[in-house]
């Protein structure tokens, strides 16, 4: 019996759809997490990183 027979019997194409749904779910979760209120301060600080990279820094 070849590998392809075994895999063929496993009917894997269902998994492609399953994986797609999982991916979408993970994506939505990340999206909610990013846009949840209350982290603005941190993001503002991070977004300035390219601008204040020329000077000595304090520990962070």
């Amino acid at each position: 019996m070849r590998l392809s027979d075994i895999m063929g019997a496993a009917n894997l194409s269902v998994y492609a759809e399953l994986a797609m749904i999982l991916f979408l779910a993970a994506f939505v979760v990340i999206m909610i997490a990013i846009f949840a209120p209350g982290r603005k301060h941190t993001y503002d600080a991070a977004s300035r990183m390219p601008l204040d990279d020329e000077h000595p820094q304090t520990p962070r």
């Binding site: 990013i34 993001y43 503002d44 977004s47 300035r48 390219p50």
Partner: peptide
């Protein structure tokens, strides 16, 4: 941001941008 001398418009959007590209 360097050339415009101001931070990116929305840092959150950039994170979202990143994950959606990786996932999609």
């Amino acid at each position: 941001p360097k050339a415009a001398d101001r931070p990116v418009f929305s840092y959150r959007l950039s994170i979202l941008h990143f994950w959606s590209l990786v996932f999609l």
